[in-house]
Nucleic acid binder design. Structure first.
Lengths: 133, 133
DNA sequence: ATATTTGCAAATAATTTGCAGTCGA
DNA sequence: TCGACTGCAAATTATTTGCAAATAT
């Protein structure tokens, strides 16, 4: 079906089953950092047998295998990002949209981290986005 | 009772009632970024009539008035930090402890934020702390 | 008195778990 | 057939809400 999706999953040691492929495809096509529920709501239209459990299972598996990164900017739900590179996230308090911040010149290492084995870095900004100002 | 606590609350337009003073005092004495429940569990020993609702109410109020900042590094609960200065947090995947990272030379502004009105900045690191390595 | 604060109990919402049915090698 | 995958239903957990009792000005 979609060779890119199949390849990405296989390369991360994930068997490319139908729901997994659809969920990954969804993440690749929707860069709006969806929640578990929005992935479910969108895909259940197309796949009526899909369950929330499968979406949870799948995203946990993707996380474990490094295919997605979690965004914990919102107190009440986890959002997922199919882009696993280090970049920031800005959440607008007006519209609620989460924007990607691709740093031009920001180095998140600091001498105060000496001795710590850093595996993940997350940077979150809150405020008002240009459109809402 | 504790003039520092009373003063801090009053200065932030918070009436220094008994539970509020105890909760703020707890935050000042415990820099381990407690969750609502751990604040509750600790203080209910001393104040048997304390309710979780009051801890929620109080911490929300503190947040609104800028007396504490939330730490969303953990998927399943919000932690609170009585230090509202901009600094990072490192969560160890072994021991679960959240360490403060006081940057020596890190500037979180970047040209890619032009146009955004930034009100809060949060930096989280995950990995293994020096003690657990 | 009157407004604010507190706290119980019930409701809500996200996530996890147990388990049975299904699918594919 | 066997192990992995899926999905329903129930359980769990953090948080919120409604409301009544207590408290303070």
């Amino acid at each position: 079906m979609n060779t890119f999706v199949t390849k990405s999953l296989t390369e991360h040691n994930i068997k490319p089953t139908f729901p997994r492929m659809k969920i990954y495809e969804y993440l690749m096509e929707h860069k709006n950092h969806p929640s578990v529920d929005s992935v479910y709501q969108e895909l259940v239209e197309e796949i009526p047998t899909l369950s929330r459990t499968t979406v949870y299972n799948t995203l946990h598996l993707f996380l474990e295998r490094g295919l997605v990164q979690p965004i914990l900017i919102n107190e009440n739900e986890v959002r997922y990002d199919g882009d696993t590179t280090v970049h920031g996230h800005f959440m607008c308090r007006e519209c609620g949209v989460i924007h990607d911040i691709f740093f031009q010149d920001l180095n998140l290492d600091d001498a105060s981290l000496d001795g710590f084995q850093v595996e993940q870095k997350q940077v979150y900004y809150n405020g008002v986005c240009p459109q809402c100002k």
